[in-house]
Each structure stands twice: as structure tokens, then as C-alpha cells.
Design a protein around this nucleic acid. Structure first.
Lengths: 215, 215
DNA sequence: TTATTGTTTAACAGCATTGTTAAATCATTG
DNA sequence: CAATGATTTAACAATGCTGTTAAACAATAA
């Protein structure tokens, strides 16, 4: 009655984990039902279709994604703070949603209609929120405190660097045979390397050096 | 008789394009047969199973991939040349194999056994070929001509930056609604940005500037 | 108790998938 | 031409998938 139905919740959780593991098309309703410990008819009773379940799961994750992005884009942050925030928060978010990017890539490639409902929010993100920082950004470029760079390229660079780390994990595990300890180490080394690279690109030096210089 | 059987070739070509479009699991033998213009029984006659067809297609592409990597790793090239070569050649290769990375990610995640046969070659690539450059690389670091960086991190950075460009295309097209002209422009802008970023990380400045300085 | 409502089960329909097989067709060679 | 082998077809088997439905079950309220 209260929307926290046991079965419904079990189905949603099973669905989420399976969608993350197998992708949208390959996660079967039968398998979801089995993992949730109910007959597969139940999940048609509660959600009607597989697509409905997926949209519920997707929506939850997309809201978390947009929340994270809004935090990062917060107008209170200075540009330099944003840089650190973006990398760290985005990285932390990915640690808890390491399978989301892969799923989104699948959807974007095979059934982009399911992402249509988020197009407007994406656009707003880039057009409105990013533009809000653009002036300050370009002032810094003019003043010579950061190297010239197209803001869109910068955003793309940051996001793609972070994503790459997590997208590569299955390859690291299954092709290069890394164990979980090595994986953890890799993720941290990579975070440092991303910071150093971005810092070199924008400030022409190592960011940690820059931090200490400042005092 | 000569291995250039018409039907066989048609099936292989249809299979390759469909595997690239839909991925391994979602490309059905029936659809492959339809695209090749033969009945689906034909492709069992020629290849026995779907997996066999896939392995044929995969093998062809992996050989091209390793050829490219060997060229890049060629011992005749100096480290600075390699940097330019790696980015450009790797980028060119991706232009002609833009769907291969996605397919490999799927396989690495869902049925890594199919990649086992290439593990040895990957390992040799990293252990032998990369090591061959390591000494020279570390001399340059010691001499201060390039910034200190872990060779593996560098390779990962280069490859992941290039891959990101192509992996993002479906998102750019279907979510951000870029048309093909915009896509082409994006790919070129991105190549420039990758060069500038790597150059800043390694040499502390813009690579094109460095090129002109040198004369 | 009985009626009502919400939940669960089991069986089924319809379809798509991979792979098989027996027979038909085609090409080549003696 | 005839016969041998390679190729192609059409029909079929077996399985798994999504989604439906009628009936069983449980909880609750009259």
C-alpha cells in the first residue's frame, strides 16, 4: 500500500543489478524474477513490461547523476575548486555507479528513445549551467592564469578520463588478469594521473606543486 | 575451392557489419543471413556455429589491431616520434574501426574466454615491446626532457583518450543530436586537444609550439 | 462467515532464436 | 551423358524469451 512493497522492491533491486551486469537487452525478465525470488509473472503484474522496469531503474540512476552534476556545477565554487571537485566527485560517483556508463552507452547506441526524456536536462546542463561559468573561465584565460581551452573540450576531457578508468575495469580484470587489489591501486594511481594531466594542461605544472606554491 | 567463395565472403561481411552494429549477443544468425542474402542454414553449413563466424571476424580485426600496435612500437622511432605516431596512427586506425572498441568491451565483460587467445600477444606487447622503450624513456625523464610519468599510465592515457572520442560518438549523435558534419569537426578538435594535453603533461607546453621552437 | 480486494501461481500462447537434416539443385569431371 | 561431390533450400526440432490469463490464495472489512 505504501509503495514499499516487498516484492516490488526485490524486483527493482534484482533488475538493477542484472541490467548493470548484462545490459538492457541481455537481462531477461525471467532471470530478474529468479534473482528476486519470485515467478516471472509477478514482474509483469507489478511493472507490466520489461521496459517499464528498466525506465524505473534508469530514472533512479539518472537522478543521482544529475544531482552529482548539479553539485559540481554549483555557482558558489570558483573555477579551480570546480576542477578539483569535478574530478573527485565525479570519480567518487563512478565508484558507486561503475556499471552505469556502460549501460548508458548501450542505450545511446541501440535505443536512444529511452534517453529522450533526459535530453532537455542534459542540454540545460551544458547551455545554462556551463555558460554560467564561461565568463569567469574566459577571464581567467585572458588573464593568463589558465591556458586557453574550449570549455566543451575541457568538460569532455574530464568526463572521458574519469569514465575510461571504470570502463576499462572489465578489460583489466578479464584480459590483463588484474586481481581486486591491483584494480583498487590502479584506480587510485589513475586518479592522480588525471589530476596531474589536467593540471599540466590548464596551469602548465603539477597541481600539487601549485597547491604548495600558493601558501 | 580457393577460399574466396562468394557466399562465404558475403556471410563474413554481413556478420562483421552486424556484429559491429549490434554486438555479439544481439547480432542474430538469421539477421546475418538475411543481410548476406542467403538462407540462415547456409551460415551453419559454412561456419557450423555463430561463435565460429564471430571468431573469424574477431581474428581479422585483432590482427589489424596488433599490426597497428607493432608499427607504433617500432624500435626505429624515437620516443617523441612515437608520441605523435601513437596518437595519429591509433586515431586513424580507430577512424576505420570505430565500432571495434565497443565490441571488445562487450566481449571482455560478458565472455572473456573468447579473448584468451590474444592474452599472450597483449602481454608480449606490454612486457616486451613496451619494455624495449623503457630505458630510453627513463633516460629522458632523468635528463629532464620529459616529466616523470609511469609508462603504463602514459599508454593507458593515450589509448583511453583516443578511444573515448569514438566511444562517445553514439552519445554525441543520439543524445546531443550532432549531425555528421559536427561529428567530423568534433573528432578533429578532439585530436588537437589530445595532442595539446599530452604535450602539456610530458613537455610542459603546447606541442605545436615546441615543434616550431625546435627549428 | 462472506465478500472484496490485492497478490501469487501455474499453465499457456506466440514468437524468435540456434542449429539440424533430408532432399533438391548445381557444377565438375570422367 | 552420368555420376560424384559441393552447395542450397525448406522444413523442422528444441529452447528461451516476453507477456497473458484463469484460477488459487491471503488479508481484510462488512
Amino acid at each position: 500500500m505504501n509503495g514499499h512493497n516487498n516484492t516490488e522492491q526485490a524486483i527493482l533491486e534484482a533488475a538493477e543489478s542484472l541490467f548493470f551486469e548484462k545490459g538492457y537487452k541481455l537481462a531477461t525478465t525471467t532471470a530478474i524474477a529468479a534473482r528476486a525470488g519470485v515467478t516471472h509473472a509477478m514482474l509483469h503484474y507489478y511493472f507490466r513490461t520489461k521496459e517499464q522496469i528498466f525506465l524505473k531503474v534508469l530514472d533512479k540512476n539518472m537522478n543521482e547523476l544529475f544531482d552529482m552534476m548539479h553539485t559540481v556545477m554549483s555557482p558558489e565554487l570558483t573555477f579551480s575548486e570546480i576542477l578539483v571537485e569535478v574530478v573527485n566527485l565525479n570519480y567518487t560517483f563512478l565508484a558507486g555507479h561503475s556499471q552505469l556508463p556502460g549501460l548508458l552507452f548501450e542505450i545511446a547506441g541501440t535505443c536512444p528513445e529511452m534517453l529522450t526524456r533526459y535530453k532537455e536536462r542534459f542540454r540545460e546542463m551544458l547551455d545554462v549551467e556551463l555558460r554560467r561559468h564561461r565568463d569567469r573561465f574566459e577571464r581567467e584565460v585572458k588573464a593568463g592564469t589558465i591556458s586557453p581551452i574550449d570549455p566543451f573540450q575541457l568538460v569532455f576531457m574530464i568526463v572521458s578520463m574519469n569514465l575510461s578508468t571504470y570502463l576499462a575495469l572489465p578489460v583489466m580484470r578479464n584480459v590483463f588478469g588484474m586481481d581486486e587489489d591491483r584494480i583498487t591501486a590502479f584506480i587510485e594511481e589513475r586518479r592522480g594521473e588525471i589530476m596531474r594531466t589536467l593540471s599540466a594542461r590548464l596551469f602548465g605544472n603539477d597541481f600539487s606543486e601549485r597547491q604548495t606554491e600558493k601558501k
